[in-house]
Every structure is written in C-alpha cells, then in structure tokens.
Design a protein around this nucleic acid. Structure first.
Length: 198
DNA sequence: GTTAGGG
DNA sequence: CCCTAAC
C-alpha cells in the first residue's frame, strides 16, 4: 500500500506543504468511512504571522497572514489515536522518541518569539481539545520565508559567497535573527533545488 | 565550531 | 525543520 512517509510532522504557520497532501489523504480516508480526526475537527487557529523583517525595516510585509490551516497529525489521522499523555522535555529532544508519541514543550519566548507563537495556556475548558501544538511532534514551527529574507540570503551569498552562512547571518542580524545558519543553508539548497536551472 | 548532506 | 557526519 502506498504508505505516506514524509517527515511525520510539520507545523506550518503560513503555508501548507507536506501536510497538504496528507490532509487530502486524510480526507480521502474520512470520505470512505472514517470520521474526521479530532486533530482537524476543531482548531481555533490564530494564524498570526509576525512581520519577520517588518519590525525593523518595515519594507514589505504584506504577503503574509494567509494562514488558516488545520494542524493535523498524520500518524493519528490514520486512526492511531495518540495518547493524551505527553512527556514535556527540557529543551531538546535529541534522542527522544521523536518517532513515537514524544512531545516537547514549546519554547515560549525563550530564544525565539518569531510570530509570537500562542503556546500560552489559555483558559481552555477541559472539554476543549488543544489540538494546536502538534501532538506527535513539536519542532520549531515552520516560519514563512519572506521575500526580503530570500533576497537577503541571495545578497549574502553573492557578497560573502555560498557556504559562509555564519558571516551572512551576522551580516544581516535583523533579517536572520530568527534564522539559523542551518536554515540559511537549507533555504538556499531548497531554492536551488526548486529552480533546478534558471 | 561550521558546513554539507540526508531524513 | 532536525540530526549526523565530515571539514
């Protein structure tokens, strides 16, 4: 059977990617006979996209705020109900059961208040189901790369050369404050892969 | 300590 | 995005 592998988790903030197809698959499953999973049944959804670079530059930050996606765990969407008990980790879940039902606590404004992730515990009644924080995985929340970020990245690569992500990041702290060198590298690679040849 | 590659 | 290996 065509098992959907993917990365097993991804909390999109302002864009849907892998979960999109997963959601479709889920719908297909639900359309057959399975009911809608609780994860996608309800979702207050805040969809707040903080202007990554608009805080300092204020150049252009009007291409965001188009969120409104359901946070659904593919693993649990298939029918494998995840337990309500999650083990709050310290900070990192290196060798933790990331593949299992492991759950790490969200870094609420510790090192990154990107879009002001509303992980704060609201006075949600016991009836409500906090389906927002992905149950199966709690990474760092995918941040929507703005045009300025991509442009700045290209600029840095053009200026400092590809591979010197550290220098690039230091060159534009305002833009890449919430981006790590790994992110820069990854983003650049993705861009190259996308273009393929242009 | 950083970077490159794979998941 | 996260983890691991190599430089």
């Amino acid at each position: 059977m065509p098992i959907v592998k993917s990365f097993a988790c991804s909390v999109v903030v302002g864009e849907s990617t892998e979960r999109d197809i997963l959601a479709k698959l889920m719908q297909d499953a639900s359309a057959s006979h399975l009911p809608i999973p609780p994860e996608a049944a309800d979702n207050p959804n805040d969809a707040n996209e903080a202007d990554v670079a608009g805080r300092t530059n204020g150049a252009d930050h009007a291409q965001q705020g188009t969120a409104g996606h359901q946070t659904v765990s593919i693993e649990g969407a298939q029918g494998v109900q995840l337990p309500e008990e999650y083990v709050p980790a310290t900070n990192k879940r290196n060798l933790m059961e990331k593949h299992a039902n492991a759950y790490t606590y969200e870094w609420d404004g510790l090192g990154d208040s990107d879009d002001g992730r509303p992980v704060g515990k609201r006075q949600l009644p016991p009836f409500e189901r906090k389906s927002h924080p992905s149950p199966a995985c709690a990474h760092k929340i995918r941040k929507k790369w703005s045009e300025i970020e991509e442009k700045t990245l290209l600029e840095g690569v053009e200026k400092y050369g590809k591979g010197n992500w550290k220098d690039i990041k230091m060159a534009y702290p305002d833009v890449f404050q919430e981006r790590s060198t790994i992110d820069l590298k990854d983003k650049f690679r993705n861009m190259e892969r996308y273009h393929e040849s242009a």
